[in-house]
Design a protein around this nucleic acid. Structure first.
Lengths: 237, 237
DNA sequence: ACCTGAACACCGTTCAAGT
DNA sequence: ACCTGAACACCGTTCAAGT
């Protein structure tokens, strides 16, 4: 994933080499204060949203925050800790519908909320998709979603499987819409449209249905298939 | 993704500093020959399969091949080109069932083949999942799969959507089985089992169904839901 | 407790030079 | 045509030191 972006060698000037005061000896930037886990994680998320996953480094994040890179280690002792916090921010805000509406509609709404969450942070999502939720906030959100499935009236084994099956669909859909075909070529040497027209008749025939305005109907069709199947399972149980 | 692995600082000795001949001036390693795109890509895949995605670097790959890192640039002018070739190796080998069996069973078989492909290279798959297929081999394989869906007798719009919907499910399932919950903690500070038992009653209740021996039934249940829905759509059309 | 600078072991990639 | 070494601009992270 990190491999596909070209390195640009802009020589960013060292802020300590010739500080704006330009006194005799290099004056230091003001001793920074007022960092916190929340502000750092929020700045990191904003950096990803704007410049993409590869732009997130301790050095660049520190620059955005006006502190030194090493200061961040006091709050996040490794990049893994920071990643966890960023994802907590986004995943923790996912709304799981409370009891009230018909059960199957609650699942449908939860699915749509998940999709909206991913589309709200398209550059972050590919990291979320391969990330395992194992923070306090993460497992509690998972617990909430599993609870929704258990309220469907299945035995636990079926509820557990349905939770995962719907999750599979949502993960794949969100990944496709954020990192997939519509995002432009990620290959180093993309195949030309002419070559596709010549060698890939099926792909050429349906290419029109792979554009962004087909995303929502594609998502809804698959969700319908799953939810209808689940509703039928429910009646049998 | 690359962030979560600890850097170990083993000091690997420079092979050119004190060559085994140990003559007066540093004798060079034999001028290497016989590299090719195929052997390099195969070695890269083997390296990933054994040591994981993070282990793939031009320097380490060159070490495995007995050449210098820079030699590889002659065959793959960037890591993106190499990544494309590795994924072509695996995705290009996916078998899409030919006409013969009932159509819905061909789709089922293709789905199982896809899962088997992912499980055959579990450490590579998370990269495949976020990778866009845009090589000649990649788009031809996609064309083949889209062809299968078009043979189902739907209008093109529906066939295109079903192709994607099934793909969503397969991507999510394969990702979960290769990078997901069962892989052990990826979080920097994983939540303890006691904390889960205390705070996450739903998760605790179904945790037994998230173990590896539940993967296959979970996969088959979701696949059944989708395929039954698709079969019903077909009758209506 | 919180922040900093220098240093280390890695990366991908460029370039000029060897065979 | 194919292979190499040195160099550059990045990384994440450690450490000893500052406030």
């Amino acid at each position: 994933m990190q491999a596909l972006k070209k390195r640009v060698s802009v020589k960013r000037d060292d802020p300590h080499k010739a500080p704006k005061g330009s006194g005799r000896r290099p004056r230091r930037a003001a001793y920074h204060q007022g960092l916190s886990r929340d502000t750092i994680a929020a700045a990191a998320l904003a950096l990803i949203d704007r410049d993409g996953l590869d732009a997130l480094s301790y050095r660049r994040l520190a620059e955005a925050l006006g502190c030194e890179a090493m200061s961040l280690y006091h709050y996040f002792p490794s990049k893994g800790h920071l990643t966890d916090a960023i994802i907590d921010c986004v995943f923790g805000a996912l709304e799981v519908p409370l009891p009230g509406p018909p059960w199957i509609e609650r699942v449908r709404l939860a699915a749509r909320n998940y999709r909206a969450m991913a589309l709200g942070h398209p550059k972050l999502y590919p990291l979320m998709a391969v990330h395992r939720m194992n923070t306090v906030i993460g497992v509690r959100k998972l617990d909430e979603i599993i609870g929704l499935f258990r309220e469907g009236g299945f035995d636990d084994a079926t509820a557990a499987r349905l939770f995962r099956d719907v999750g599979y669909y949502l993960t794949g859909a969100a990944l496709d819409e954020t990192a997939g075909y519509a995002k432009g070529p990620s290959s180093a040497e993309p195949v030309s449209d002419e070559a596709i027209a010549r060698d890939c008749p099926n792909l050429a025939a349906v290419a029109g249905y792979f554009k962004p305005d087909s995303f929502a109907p594609t998502f809804e069709q698959g969700l319908d298939l799953l939810l209808e199947g689940i509703a039928r399972l429910r009646k049998k149980a």
